[in-house]
Design a protein around this nucleic acid. Structure first.
Lengths: 108, 108
DNA sequence: GCTATATATCGTAATATTACGATATAAGGT
DNA sequence: ACCTTATATCGTAATATTACGATATATAGC
């Protein structure tokens, strides 16, 4: 056991879970905020900004990339990361939909 | 190792990460959608709705409760779960803020 | 108090995540 | 080709998550 039963859920549910999971770590929130703030999408400056080692930051960047939230362009010897607009707006839309589907205060 | 360095990040970053992490599993997305759909916030019917065992569902409910997204009222022999309005709108606001802070398409 | 039903918790096993140092890879400059 | 710099990957260790069956707990009804 210990393996998420993805096949048992809908595509939409799995997609949303993947996106939310990628946001489910303070370091990754911090990375995204930093990428948004410094529009120039400075690359390895993230390592200096975060209280984590270079390899750990690289791992978090990889996960954000896997989820599709960011993309990385090679730029000389370094890599330039930035928000992937398409997935970003998709994530926003999906989460908005979930949050907005709750209207009335239920029963308890 | 293997322990998230929560102290190194801001309160807001950690809070958002906790909320997102709670949403980071398809079963928990399914549970929330079900709770919203059946306004009567039927309790253990969730177990019948999901392709998971009773104990596993109970574990997921516990995590959603820990994150504050839902609350459970004892109602006779069973428990009535429903969305916790306060945390729900807080989560919505925090995520909205993150998503909306991205405007221009960066560089790459 | 006993019984049935509904949830929660415990114990356990498998897999995943987080983190780091060390090492590998890739690109630019000399 | 060599060196430097920037990132990525590997190996490893600790902790967390996911899942289930079995057992405990709690409440209503008898």
């Amino acid at each position: 056991m210990g393996l998420t039963k993805t096949e048992e859920f809908t595509k939409a549910q799995n997609e949303m879970a993947v996106l939310a999971k990628a946001l489910g770590h303070p370091a990754r929130i911090a990375i995204l905020q930093f990428l948004i703030k410094t529009k120039s999408c400075v690359c390895g400056d993230i390592v200096e900004e975060l209280p984590l080692s270079q390899s750990t930051v690289s791992q978090h960047l990889k996960e954000l990339k896997n989820a599709g939230l960011i993309k990385g362009d090679i730029e000389g010897p370094s890599v330039c990361y930035c928000i992937d607009e398409k997935t970003w707006s998709k994530a926003k839309a999906q989460l908005d939909k979930l949050f907005d589907s709750y209207k009335e205060p239920g029963c308890c």
